[in-house]
Simulated scan of single mutants.
Amino acid sequence: MKTNNIYKSFLIVIMVSLSISCEDETPAYEQLTDSKENAQIFIAKAVNGAVDLEIFPYADQRETNFGIGFGGVGLPASDISVKLEINQTALDSLNQIRVASGRDPYLIFPSDAYEIGDLSFTIPAGKQSSGVTKLTYFPNKFDSSSDFALPLTIVESSGYNVNPSTKNIIFLANAPRERVANTNGWIATASSSQDNGWENTGLASALLDGDLNTIWHSEYSPTTPGYPHTVSFDMTKKIFVTKVQIAPRQNNNSGPTKFYLEGTNGGDWIKLTEELDFNPANIDFQEYVITGQTLDKIRMVMTEGRQTVSFLSEFKVFAF
């Protein structure tokens, strides 16, 4: 009996010891350490180095945040102080590449175009990241004919190594550039079309395919509706439109001679232009500038032509 009690007591001691040992066993990634081996500091938003700020559509003010991160086995046992500064050398290096490729150099952010919070950060003990600092920028203050950059770099890191790929962050404020709008997913329709395979495609979609040899053709069989003829484009999202280019049918100069443009921004159709002239004998793209504005649909209303039917080759929309 006495032997059994001793045995039970021995088991209890072992179980208690095991329980205490398990409670004290903290996973390596949660252990606090001041070791700097294999630990790095990085700017948390500096993936690929550059951050493109949204300048257009213009607004009075926009904001973005960034902070500092810690990477390593375990967690820091003490606070880590990190400091950033504007890095003119980084900007000079970037501009050497731009100039060599024939582009104008970046200009430093104008002093009245942004406000930035404290560039001294602290990663608290036991944590993997600092608080964030806010960059407030004012799109209307940037010259729309130039590109701007604000390069920041880590200059103090409490003795920790700094990840070289995320040591710098460069905020970019690029001037808006007019471009041909991507028509993927657009829906093209017409008041009528010859959609039985005659006259190449015959459909309104031919105006968006990038091929001058395919055309939209108004219906001529079994009926032949006359002017006005309309081709419409649902852009499926809102874009800031600045102009259009229209190409006539390449092998027939009897197309439309007068038209106007209309558009919508989620509501009713509104006139974008007064009646304009079109030359169906000029096989080049003919350009028509509108007052820049946000649209989700645009259409061309043809009012006169050289014969009852009408046709076109291509329709391009330009936008920022």
Score class of each variant (00 low, 15 high):
residue 21 S to I: 15
residue 59 A to S: 13
residue 290 I to A: 08
residue 129 S to H: 08
residue 76 P to Q: 12
residue 251 N to F: 09
residue 110 P to H: 03
residue 183 T to Q: 05
residue 258 K to C: 04
residue 260 Y to N: 07
residue 217 H to D: 11
residue 202 G to S: 02
residue 45 K to G: 09
residue 273 T to Q: 10
residue 51 V to M: 06
residue 101 S to K: 13
residue 86 I to R: 12
residue 104 D to V: 14
residue 280 P to L: 10
residue 224 T to I: 13
residue 5 N to C: 13
residue 305 G to T: 13
residue 54 E to G: 00
residue 285 F to C: 02
residue 178 E to L: 14
residue 318 F to G: 01
residue 155 V to D: 04
residue 122 T to S: 07
residue 58 Y to R: 10
residue 46 A to E: 01
residue 160 Y to R: 07
residue 153 T to M: 12
residue 282 N to M: 06
residue 62 R to F: 02
residue 219 E to S: 13
residue 259 F to Y: 10
residue 61 Q to T: 15
residue 160 Y to V: 07
residue 201 T to Y: 04
residue 228 P to E: 08
residue 177 R to Q: 13
residue 225 P to W: 09
residue 131 G to P: 00
residue 301 V to I: 14
residue 288 Y to H: 03
residue 313 S to P: 08
residue 38 N to H: 09
residue 255 G to C: 09
residue 290 I to P: 01
residue 162 V to L: 08
residue 171 F to N: 02
residue 77 A to N: 07
residue 8 K to A: 14
residue 82 V to D: 01
residue 94 L to T: 08
residue 317 V to C: 06
residue 33 T to M: 07
residue 305 G to D: 12
residue 270 I to G: 06
residue 181 A to T: 08
residue 134 K to E: 07
residue 282 N to K: 09
residue 26 T to G: 01
residue 301 V to M: 03
residue 136 T to E: 01
residue 240 F to C: 05
residue 305 G to E: 08
residue 109 F to S: 05
residue 110 P to I: 05
residue 44 A to P: 00
residue 91 L to G: 05
residue 123 I to L: 03
residue 17 S to Y: 09
residue 150 L to K: 06
residue 168 N to Y: 11
residue 48 N to D: 14
residue 292 G to W: 08
residue 79 D to C: 07
residue 208 L to K: 04
residue 49 G to H: 10
residue 137 Y to N: 05
residue 239 I to L: 15
residue 233 F to R: 08
residue 166 T to I: 05
residue 278 F to I: 05
residue 129 S to W: 01
residue 289 V to R: 14
residue 318 F to V: 07
residue 29 Y to M: 11
residue 160 Y to P: 00
residue 266 G to K: 11
residue 288 Y to E: 01
residue 45 K to T: 12
residue 257 T to D: 02
residue 115 E to N: 13
residue 170 I to P: 07
residue 204 A to R: 03
residue 140 N to P: 00
